[in-house]
C-alpha cells in the first residue's frame, strides 16, 4: 500500500518543505544585507530589519546548543509524553531551530550532541499525513 503524502502540520507550511519523494528539510531565509541565516522565516530580518533576503534550504543535521527536559507542560499535539527534552539545535551551515528531541532517553541529551531531523505524525487531513519536525540523535 502506498504511503500517504506527508504535509506539514497547520502553521508549519512555511517552516517545513516535504518533496513528493518524501525528502524533507526546514526552510530558512538568508539576509542579503547582514548575512544572517534566520529560522523560521520572517517578514523583516530580525537582526537588521532588511526585507532583502532569499529563501534557503537548511541542513537536517546539527548539534544541540542548549536544552531542558520538560516535566510540566501545557500539552502538545505532536504526541510527546513528559518528560521530554526540548532543545535549540544549531544547524550545520547556519540557522537555529527550537525543537523537541525524540528517540532517546531524556537523561542522555547533552549540549554538543549530534542530532538529525525526524518527522512525527500529528494527524491526518484529506487523506494526507500531517507531520511535525523534531530532532533525534544522529545515526553514526
Amino acid at each position: 500500500m502506498a504511503e500517504s503524502e506527508k504535509v506539514p502540520m497547520t502553521g508549519g507550511e512555511e517552516r517545513l518543505k516535504i518533496s513528493p519523494d518524501g525528502e524533507a528539510h526546514l526552510i530558512g531565509m538568508k539576509c542579503k544585507s547582514c548575512g544572517e541565516t534566520i529560522f523560521p522565516k520572517a517578514s523583516l530580518c530580525p537582526n537588521c530589519s532588511s526585507e532583502d533576503f532569499e529563501e534557503v534550504a537548511l541542513s537536517t543535521k546539527g548539534k544541540i546548543w542548549s536544552y531542558t527536559v520538560v516535566h510540566a507542560s501545557y500539552g502538545n499535539i505532536i504526541g510527546l509524553e513528559p518528560p521530554y527534552p526540548a532543545a535549540f539545535v544549531e544547524l550545520s551551515g547556519g540557522g537555529y531551530v527550537h525543537t523537541a528531541i525524540v528517540g532517546c532517553d531524556p537523561d542522555d541529551v547533552k549540549v554538543g550532541m549530534d542530532v538529525e531531523m525526524d518527522l512525527l505524525t500529528v494527524g491526518e487531513s484529506e487523506g494526507k499525513e500531517e507531520v511535525a519536525y523534531a530532532f533525534k540523535p544522529a545515526s553514526t
Binding site: P40, T68, Y74, I78, T99
Partner: peptide, 25 residues
C-alpha cells in the same frame, strides 16, 4: 504561523523551560 503558537502546540513553551535553557548552556 505565529512562532509562539507553533512552538506552544509542539509543547516547547514554558516559563521555567525558558530559564532552564539559559542555565543549561
Amino acid at each position: 504561523k505565529n512562532e509562539m503558537l507553533y512552538d506552544g502546540l509542539n509543547g516547547l513553551i514554558t516559563m521555567p523551560g525558558a530559564y532552564a535553557h539559559h542555565i543549561v548552556r
